[in-house]
């Protein structure tokens, strides 16, 4: 399963997902399930190596809200591509809690969801589909118009229209998009 960014470029993946009961290694970034994070938070933070947390689709961001500057990766698991809860979780993390680190979609992630995912604030994607590179980069920009605000930089059609009417360039409307 290739890991890509929102331009479709393949990313190297330094993260190691710790299995249940597996010892915490001394070196290297580790990704742990939320339960393990809650139980071993202090040990994980004492390592001075990057820590990431994996949330199941039933797990919300509230338990992490005080630690969002201490984790460098949050991975949201899609057990099925039809389970849409992580879209809401992602927006809450970005827009309400101001999380600025890497937000990764993992599990059942299909090409035709990528644009929705990116708009909700995800910036890395473990994609199930076979294609990679240029072909998949297209999937992030198939629909060039956004009607609603989300966690991305794209201005809404309504704001673009306002700019067209007043002549004022509205592209900065969403500049503070992770900031409130």
């Amino acid at each position: 399963m290739p890991l890509i960014d929102s331009d479709g470029r393949t990313l190297s993946d330094p993260w190691r997902l710790l299995a249940e009961g597996e010892d915490i290694p001394e070196l290297g970034p580790v990704l742990v399930p939320l339960r393990r994070w809650l139980a071993e938070r202090d040990r994980l933070l004492a390592r001075s190596e990057p820590v990431g947390v994996l949330l199941q689709s039933s797990e919300g961001p509230a338990d992490l809200s005080g630690d969002l500057r201490r984790v460098s990766l949050i991975a949201l698991e899609f057990p099925k591509f039809t389970d849409g809860r992580p879209y809401s979780t992602a927006r809450l993390l970005r827009e309400r809690y101001g999380y600025a680190g890497e937000l990764r979609a993992t599990g059942a992630v299909l090409r035709d969801q990528l644009q929705f995912l990116r708009r909700c604030g995800f910036d890395s994607f473990e994609v199930e589909n076979r294609e990679a590179g240029d072909a998949i980069a297209e999937a992030f920009r198939e629909i060039s118009v956004s009607y609603q605000a989300a966690a991305d930089e794209a201005p809404r059609a309504a704001d673009v229209r306002r700019g067209e009417r007043t002549g004022y360039e509205q592209s900065k409307v969403c500049a503070g998009f992770w900031a409130y």
Binding site: F81, T82, S88, R91, F116, C120, Y147, Q148, A150, A158
Partner: peptide, 14 residues
């Protein structure tokens, strides 16, 4: 209609 069209958060509801 416009708001709901390709709403990125609400395209995979229960």
């Amino acid at each position: 209609r416009q708001w709901s069209t390709f709403h990125p958060e609400f395209s995979f509801l229960p």
